[in-house]
Simulated assay, not measured.
Amino acid sequence: MFLALFLINMLVILFAVLIHHETLYALAKFLPRLPVSRHRVLFALIGVLLAHVAEIWLFAITYYFLNAMDGFGVLSGNFSNTLLDCAYFSFTVYTSLGFGDVVPLGDLRFLSGLESLVGLVMIAWSASFMYMEMQKNW
């Protein structure tokens, strides 16, 4: 069970990083083609936010399936076993907001800890990218 959980966690992190990398790479290639420089920052911000949302939903779907399976732990508290509740939990964990009304028990605690770390790194990466775009275009 430990090996399966480890592999699932690593795959989710890998996919989240790939989503972010490919989004930033595509934006870096696309943005210089826009004729108005102030629109470049706007499109960059929208693209970065969409990447974060996709990563959060990736974690939410993982929580949803792991919560439904035996042996991986559960989400408890103000939680009704829906995908939307998993997305809410994922948004609060990814952003390190952590309201605490939904709590992971068992092995899901490891994924939620990793998601917080991934969210911190991806948000910092996005901030760095946006800073560079603003320096170039403003």
Rank of each mutant, 00 (worst) to 15 (best):
L11H: 11
F15K: 03
F30A: 03
V41P: 09
S37A: 03
K29I: 01
G77M: 15
W125R: 00
Y63M: 08
A54T: 12
V36K: 12
A44F: 05
L49Y: 05
N9V: 05
L42Y: 03
L11V: 00
I19N: 07
P35E: 00
S37D: 08
A16Y: 09
H21W: 08
L27Y: 04
V103M: 09
A68I: 07
G73V: 13
N9H: 01
R109G: 09
D70K: 14
L14K: 15
L111D: 00
L14M: 10
L114Y: 13
S76T: 14
L50G: 02
R33W: 02
L7G: 00
V12S: 06
A60D: 12
V12P: 13
H21Y: 05
V118M: 08
G119H: 00
L97W: 08
E22R: 15
W125A: 04
L120N: 02
I8L: 02
S37K: 02
V12H: 00
G119M: 08
T62H: 04
F2T: 12
K136T: 08
K136D: 01
A28N: 01
I56R: 11
L105C: 10
K29N: 06
T23D: 00
G106Q: 08
S96T: 03
P35L: 04
L31C: 08
S90H: 09
I56P: 10
F89R: 15
L31G: 01
G77F: 10
Y25D: 04
E133H: 02
M1N: 14
Y25V: 11
L24S: 05
L120Q: 05
E115D: 01
D101F: 13
L18K: 03
M1H: 12
I61D: 01
L105F: 07
W57F: 11
E55C: 01
M134Y: 06
D101P: 15
G119L: 13
L84P: 15
L105K: 06
H20G: 09
G71P: 10
W57H: 09
L84M: 14
A68N: 10
D85P: 14
S76Y: 10
V17Q: 15
A44S: 05
V93K: 14
M69L: 11
F30M: 13
F15C: 09
M132E: 03
S126E: 15
A68P: 15
I123R: 00
Q135H: 15
Y25E: 05
G106F: 02
M134G: 13
L105A: 10
Y64H: 11
R38Q: 04
N78A: 11
N81D: 05
L49K: 11
F43A: 00
L31W: 12
L75Q: 14
L18P: 00
V118L: 10
T62G: 01
F2N: 13
Q135E: 13
A16R: 13
A16L: 04
L7T: 03
A68D: 05
M122Y: 01
L27F: 06
S116M: 06
R33Y: 00
L3K: 07
L42H: 06
V93N: 06
A26K: 07
A51P: 02
A4S: 11
L75D: 07
L75F: 09
H39A: 04
F72L: 14
M10D: 08
D107C: 12
L83V: 11
F30V: 09
M130S: 08
S96H: 10
V12G: 01
F30N: 13
D85V: 12
